[in-house]
Amino acid sequence: MRTPRVPASLTGLACLFAVWEAASRSDLVPAHYLRPPSVVFPTLVRLLGDPVFLRAVVATVAATLLALGIAVLIAVPAGLVLGSFPPVRRATMTIVEFLRPIPSVALIPLALLTFGTGPDTKVTLAVYGALWPILFNTMYALDEIDPLHVETARAFGTGRLAVLTRVALPSAAPFVLTGVRLSFAISLAVVISTELFAGGAIGLGQFILAASSGGAHMDEVLAGTVLAGLIGFAANSGLEWLHRAVFAWNVSADGLR
């Protein structure tokens, strides 16, 4: 989707907050829980100056990025191999089809037992979740490579390995980046889920869970949630922008969500 004009979209966001404010001040919803933005935003500003909160945010974002990086390092080569060697793909696809549907959050209890509550747990789980979109996008992109591109390269005496790096990889790159964009959201969600469940872990999820207990600090819950949304929004927009900037030559892979 194209980004709408900035003024209109800002007006839209302002309206969202106005409706939220009005709903919270009227008796339509329990105002104790849905704190109005006029309370939530000052709380967010206060929290951003709080080192404990900042440490939690940094821990979450760092784990997300680390997991995403590891997932790329595993999934891109794996996707290239599976995409270019049909026998390997046939042989391993059954295992992949068996593993992929297992929601990574279902592995949280197991991971906590085996890895403990440290950052390893959330990073491992997030890698598992973030792997699939990148792997499948890389693999499918290789299926879609124009055979004429390969023939052209081969006619100029390009060897098999060189065709993989000089033709297959660049033409798959936009789809890989789309996979990375989808995986960021998954990685962030899995990291936060793990933090929600594993009491001892430092992170945004843990902070919000603690703030929510008993419903005493709902402004902090909402502030943290809004911040997480902003992080996701910024990452998504940033990667979309990167896509447009780097792959200006490509239009077909642009609209992938």
């Binding site: 124009d146 004429l148 591109h149 023939e151 052209t152 006619a155 100029f156 033709v167 660049p170 033409s171 790159a173 792959f247 030559w249 490509n250």
Partner: peptide
């Protein structure tokens, strides 16, 4: 060297 009919597919768009 080969020149194919389908130039749009034989040049590398990237």
């Amino acid at each position: 060297a080969v020149v194919f009919q389908d130039y749009s597919r034989s040049l590398f768009p990237w």
